[in-house]
Each structure stands twice: as C-alpha cells, then as structure tokens.
Amino acid sequence: NITNLCPFDEVFNATRFASVYAWNRKRISNCVADYSVLYNLAPFFTFKCYGVSPTKLNDLCFTNVYADSFVIRGDEVRQIAPGQTGNIADYNYKLPDDFTGCVIAWNSNKLDSKVSGNYNYLYRLFRKSNLKPFERDISTEIYQAGNKPCNGVAGFNCYFPLRSYSFRPTYGVGHQPYRVVVLSFELLHAPATVCGPKKST
C-alpha cells in the first residue's frame, strides 16, 4: 500500500533546468501520483496529453512515469509533440509517434532571462542524422558540413554543433524561455507502482 506522493514538485520547481540537447530525465515510481497538483503548480502555457485524457490521469496506474525536463524558446514548444519536425524535434528531443503522456510548458522569462542575455541554455544546431525517439546526444564533436574532414577544428564548413540561446527579458514571447516537462507513461507487463490517489488504497 503506497502512500508517499510522487515528487513532481522537485521536477517542476527545480531551480535550474537542463539545456534541451542534454535534457534531464527523472524516473518516478512507487508513489501516489496526484496530477491535479500539477494544474495548480504554475499558470501553464501548455498542458497537452496524448493517448490519455488529462482529467482521467488520477484514475490510472502505470509501471513507471518518466519526467523529462529542459528549456526551449516559446515558438519551439509546438515541436514537443508526436510527429513534429524542426531543429528541436530533429536534433535535441524527439517524441515517438505513439507517445503516451503529457507535455507541460510554461513561460520562464522571469527566471531564465537576463538583461545582458542568459547564454547558459544550449541547443544542438547541427547533426548528421535525426534523433530516434527519446535519444539523447550530448556530443560536442565538430560538425563537418563540407567534404573536407574537420579534424576537430572549427572553421570553414566545420561547425561547433551547439548554439546558445541568449534569453533577454525584452524579447518577444516566441523568443522567451519556456520550461518544459514531458511526462511519459510506461505500461509494462509488470506491477503498477505509480497510481492516482483513488487507485492507491
């Protein structure tokens, strides 16, 4: 009989979030998941669920729940959905087409922007091929755009693959930082360890 609440607040209220290319994953298990708490945590810009209804979450049980978190800019949030393409979905964080879970995003301009520009958040701009779903690539190998090998040196047709967002508070919403948490629900042929409040007794 599990009584402890799932530590969603640790994920959502973390002081620092990860850069999207090096997104963070927390496995959540053996706890009571009260998803209604999430609705009250922040004024969400996005709370979209796929393959599951957000209002039914509190009635369900899962084997595992994974919470992935990272920062992107406002106009990239739409890429965090099944079947999307674009720089983020292709080279940084890719959801599977049959994704079961929820994408939660909110504006973090007050936390993640600086007047002089916050350069701490990076994204991958160049990659030889698209990522597979939930693949994480943290390599910093020089990207070869031409025929000549780069031998690890940046220059003509040889690019450092990561680029930094420079978040400034005066930017338009599309270029402001957004914190994203992706909850993916895993149903294996194994005992369910993460249940809503109704199912945990």
Rank of each mutant, 00 (worst) to 15 (best):
N157W: 07
G74C: 03
I72K: 00
Y35A: 09
G152A: 08
N24I: 03
G74E: 08
F8W: 09
R179L: 04
G74V: 01
N58W: 07
N30C: 06
V65W: 03
D112K: 01
R27S: 09
I2F: 13
A81M: 04
N64F: 09
S36C: 05
L125N: 13
A81E: 06
N157L: 09
R25D: 04
S200C: 12
N87C: 10
H175M: 13
F156T: 15
K56W: 02
I104Y: 11
V37N: 10
V65P: 00
C49E: 00
A145S: 11
D59K: 11
L111S: 11
E10F: 05
H189Y: 09
I104P: 00
L188D: 15
V32G: 06
Y121H: 10
V180S: 00
N1G: 09
S129L: 07
C61S: 07
P161G: 02
C49V: 00
T201V: 13
P161T: 04
L41C: 08
K56E: 12
N118C: 06
V182E: 00
Y143G: 06
F134P: 04
P7T: 09
Y119C: 12
R25Y: 02
V52K: 03
T46L: 12
E135Q: 10
D137E: 03
N1S: 09
A22P: 02
S69H: 01
V37T: 13
P191Y: 07
S19T: 03
D9F: 09
S129N: 13
C61R: 07
T201E: 14
K110S: 12
N30E: 07
A81Y: 00
N147P: 12
V77A: 04
A42Y: 10
S166Y: 09
N151M: 11
F8G: 03
G117D: 12
L162A: 04
I72Q: 01
S164G: 10
Y93G: 01
S139F: 01
A145I: 09
I2M: 13
Y123T: 05
N147Q: 13
E141W: 02
N92H: 02
P149Y: 07
L38Q: 03
P82N: 03
C102G: 00
S53W: 06
S184N: 12
L57T: 05
V194S: 11
T15S: 12
G74L: 02
N147S: 14
V20K: 03
V153K: 14
G172E: 14
T85G: 08
G155Q: 09
E76A: 02
T46Y: 15
G174S: 14
D137Q: 01
T15A: 09
K26L: 08
R16T: 14
F8E: 02
P133W: 01
I104A: 06
C102T: 00
L187P: 09
T201L: 13
D90H: 06
I104G: 02
T55A: 14
Y143H: 11
G86D: 02
F17S: 04
V173M: 13
L125M: 14
F45Q: 15
Q84G: 12
R124W: 03
V115Y: 11
D59P: 05
D137Y: 00
T170W: 14
T15W: 00
S29G: 09
S129T: 13
R27Q: 11
